[in-house]
């Protein structure tokens, strides 16, 4: 039993370190982009077009991950693209979480007419196909960072609302909630101080998952050119461009894909890892 526990916690620890490490690294690079990126991400230099990454013959110093067909540095563009990805992840993820989790918590704990109203709203909302919904929203709002964020929040709050509602309902049936009433705690106090701490691990996992989803959605929208203006580097935009020259310069496609993959994976693993690490009940 003790062995199994240490095994689980060690594995959870490794997961936490790897995913957290990548996200910290990415965040630092994004914040310090002007200082750490080797080149101006927009500077074109046709004489330095399609340079291969550093380990291949013909590579040039200053272009560690190679350059694209316009001679722009791939690494610098990835770093600046991380800015957009992380801003969308953090802001859209947090807003989605706040709105969805609050509604879910209220519906699940209070029941009655608040639950009826919120649940019906969720049902109606989920009847819209999400991709169509997103493209429609962007068409109405116009492209831009805030449009992407609004589209993600508007579409995905139902995920939080549904899961948190179910969990809050399960918790509300426990005797510790009755016991809070016996102690004279108000309804709102019980929701915030008794139920919320018990729903928080679920919320945390959903939040990091949502951040990963936000990164993907941003990448998809910039891939189809519905994201921010085309001259700013985004991972989705890089992938779209790299696709055209895959046989001549695979690195233009592959490196942003790897960055995207690692980031999305890290977000989902971070939530699970944090839950395993800091949940007193599992510890």
């Amino acid at each position: 039993m003790a062995d199994a526990r240490t095994f689980v916690s060690r594995r959870a620890g490794l997961r936490l370190w790897l995913s957290g490490g990548w996200l910290v690294l990415l965040t630092l690079a994004a914040v310090l982009a002007p200082f750490v990126s080797p080149q101006d991400p927009l500077a074109q230099d046709l004489f330095a077009a399609r340079l291969p990454p550093f380990w291949q013959a013909g590579a040039e110093a200053g272009f560690p991950l190679g350059s694209d067909s316009l001679g722009r540095d791939v690494l610098s563009r990835i770093i600046y693209g991380a800015r957009v990805a992380l801003i969308v992840a953090v802001i859209a993820g947090t807003l989605t979480c706040l709105i969805g989790a609050t509604l879910g918590l209220v519906a699940g704990y209070f029941g009655g007419w608040p639950d009826l109203v919120i649940s019906r709203l969720v049902d109606i909302w989920m009847a819209f196909p999400p991709v169509l919904f997103a493209i429609l929203l962007i068409a109405v709002l116009g492209t831009g960072l805030s449009s992407i964020i609004i589209a993600i929040v508007v579409i995905d709050w139902t995920r939080f609302a549904r899961v948190v509602r179910a969990e809050a309902m399960r918790q509300a049936a426990m005797d510790y909630v009755a016991s809070a009433q016996v102690a004279g705690r108000s309804r709102a106090g019980t929701m915030l101080r008794e139920i919320l701490p018990n729903v928080l691990p679920t919320i945390l996992v959903l939040l990091t998952l949502e951040m990963g989803i936000a990164v993907i959605v941003e990448a998809i929208l910039s891939f189809v050119n519905l994201s921010i203006s085309t001259d700013q580097p985004t991972w989705g935009g890089m992938i779209a461009e790299g696709r055209l020259s895959i046989y001549q310069a695979w690195w233009v496609l592959v490196f942003p894909l790897v960055a995207l993959f690692l980031t999305v994976l890290s977000f989902s693993q971070l939530g699970e890892g944090l839950k395993d690490r800091f949940d007193p009940v599992l510890r």
């Binding site: 426990m174 005797d175 510790y176 009755a178 004279g184």
Partner: peptide, 23 residues
Amino acid sequence: LRPLRRKFQMIFQDPMSSLNPRL
């Protein structure tokens, strides 16, 4: 009722469910 509640208390059948696991 709330101010009166101090005066009548209850001990529950299942202590696992009646004690908040996060506290």
